[in-house]
């Protein structure tokens, strides 16, 4: 099963390498990983997406918790949550294509953030699934370059991950 694990950790050099090292050392896979400092600049928040059965995920969370730099973590997929990923895509947009791309962007509630005579650069935010669908709608031949931020997430409602 796909899981989104959110980790609060000390904003220290080497902390990220310990997390990444743990995954490679123990043979856990990482689908995506994002990290940035939080509003408290002594802390970073890391979101990682991994795949495994319940037992594997239990081991992953236990071993993450064991890392001295990790302050707290939550498996967002255990409750209702919001998941977002940012996609930037550069597409060929000539003639009739221009309108077609524009329509797809509107349907997926994206924005065109850069334009020239033959190219649109589009930004879309959403779940990984939505971004996949958008890319599919664009069609392979129009796509010049894709960059995805990796997933970040947050729990719905009252639940917060903080100190």
């Amino acid at each position: 099963m796909r899981r989104i694990i959110s980790v609060l950790m000390e904003n220290e050099p080497g902390a990220l390498s310990r997390v990444v090292g743990l995954f490679s050392q123990r043979g856990y896979n990482i689908e995506s990983l994002t990290v940035a400092p939080t509003e408290d600049n002594t802390l970073s928040r890391l979101t990682l997406v991994t795949i495994g059965d319940d037992r594997k995920i239990e081991q992953i969370t236990k071993n993450l918790n064991k890392l001295v730099d990790v302050v707290k973590l939550v498996d967002l997929t255990e409750g209702s949550h919001i998941e977002r990923e940012l996609l930037l895509v550069k597409v060929r947009a000539n003639g009739a294509q221009r309108d077609e791309v524009k329509r797809s962007v509107d349907i997926f509630r994206g924005q065109i953030v850069d334009v020239n005579s033959s190219i649109y650069t589009v930004q879309v935010a959403g779940t990984g699934e939505k971004l996949d669908a958008f890319l599919q709608a664009l069609g392979e031949h129009t796509i010049m370059e894709v960059v995805r931020s990796g997933v970040s997430g947050i729990a719905r409602g009252e639940k917060v991950l903080s100190l």
Binding site: R55, E58, Q59, K62, N63, N65, K66
Partner: peptide, 10 residues
């Protein structure tokens, strides 16, 4: 160590 528990044998 919680990570030692149920690692190989439940």
């Amino acid at each position: 160590d919680p990570a030692s528990i149920s690692k190989t044998i439940i």
